[in-house]
Write a protein that binds this DNA or RNA. Structure first.
Length: 127
RNA sequence: CGAGCCGGUUGGACAGUCGCUGCGCCGCGAGGGGAAACCCGGGCGGCGGGGAGGAAAGUCCGGGCUCCAGUGGACAGGGUGCCAGGUAACGCCUGGGGGGCGCGAGCCCACGGAAAGUGCAACAGAAAAUAAACCGCCUAAGCGUCCUUCGGGACGCCGGUAAGGGUGAAACGGUGCGGUAAGAGCGCACCGCGUCGCUGGCAACAGUCGACGGCACGGCAAACCCCACCUGGAGCAAGGCCAAAUAGGGAAGUCGCGGCGGAUCGCAAGAUUCGUCGCAAGCGUGGGUCCCGCGUGCUUCCGGGUAGGCCGCUGAAGGGUUGCGGUGACGUAACCCGUAGAGGAAUGGCUGUCCUCGACAGAACCCGGCUUACAGGCCGACUCGCCCU
């Protein structure tokens, strides 16, 4: 079973970025799309399917309840859109505006960002 | 009914749908073990049931647990500080005492020692602690100046005085009477205070009690300090187990390894040997040979240990009901329930319906407290005021 079809709406541990090395690898490529709520760094994924990492700091987003809310929203959106994404590792960083925005607004923002990532990867010979 | 006060409790509901997680059961199954039967089984799928808080928070105390240290103690350092009880323990809780606030229900208080010593007190004020004379009051013996109706008078110095004024957070008991030059516990009465006794109380402490003392002993100990009691250190990234790859350590074995070609033996696989090429690290007494030692390479094993994995990890000094003991905290017996265990970190997203439109806020080894944050809702006890009966 490929993670891309049957489990296209799940979110398993293999779809998470786990180690600091992975994060550094993604940041090192310096490919990024962003808006006022999030910045998304991305890099080709060695395992061959999309993976997600989160960077939600207390400095930007506030207390634990607020950080949990943002992280859950990002994961949920990734889960729903992963079938549209190429094989990339993504690191989503939350910005200060995300703290006060409604979930619906965050979801709109993330959907746009996923599209940008997909089109940039399709256009890029590096992928 | 209004106002208040104390305690407890709750912390949107329901449905559909898509996810996450660990548990149980079932199925598939990479692979592993075994002679076999069969067993184990990463992972994947399905079903079922569980899945944040009263503060999960601050990390301020107390304990459990773990490792380290430690004969016993003493000191230092730290903590606590009215008394008694509760508790595993506490800086917590309960009851009591004392002081303060409130009409009251109630609330608040680091509440041991200032006659062991050292020290501090801004500004103001004369003076801030072996008291003190700024204004004032008194005095006229002495000295000085002035006035004089020659009797004396006024002022200053000297002297007496803490009753009055003024300053201050605080000024060395209060009121009254006597007393005095004016005053003063100087004397007296009452109040207050201290010491001793008696009585009540386990005690803190209290007393309409008695005797003695004219009254001394101002404040600050969240200043040093003294006294009494408590106290080893670090923390789940504690700590324990399994354990790759690479490098390094130890032990044993081996001294060349590989390619090509030839010869001998053999049915063959292959073995022995010679030549040559490539790689290699050889050294010890000048050379050769043998032995030995060191070293290199290779093989096997061992221990430490990294990544990684597993355990610790949730049954808790657990909760509820009832009975009994206790003023109470709490204890105890029976019965019932047994309640998240993640690990870059789950406990959620979306849609719809409803209402009183939803606060503060997210477990990270576990408990007991304290403190702080918080929209509201509900229950109970009590107090004050008004009205009705």
């Amino acid at each position: 079973m490929l993670p891309g079809d049957r489990r296209s709406h799940g979110f398993a541990p293999r779809q998470r970025l786990l180690s600091p090395k992975d994060y550094q690898r993604v940041y090192a490529l310096r490919r990024r799309v962003s808006d006022g709520f999030f910045s998304v760094n991305f890099a080709p994924s060695p395992p061959g399917h999309a993976r997600l990492g989160l960077s939600v700091g207390a400095k930007m987003v506030g207390n634990a309840v607020s950080r949990n809310r943002v992280k859950r929203t990002v994961r949920e959106s990734f889960r729903a859109h992963q079938h549209l994404l190429p094989s990339v590792d993504l690191v989503v960083g939350a910005r200060a505006m995300a703290r006060t925005a409604h979930n619906a607004r965050l979801r709109e923002s993330l959907a746009e960002l996923w599209k940008k990532v997909a089109t940039q990867c399709a256009a890029s010979p590096a992928q």
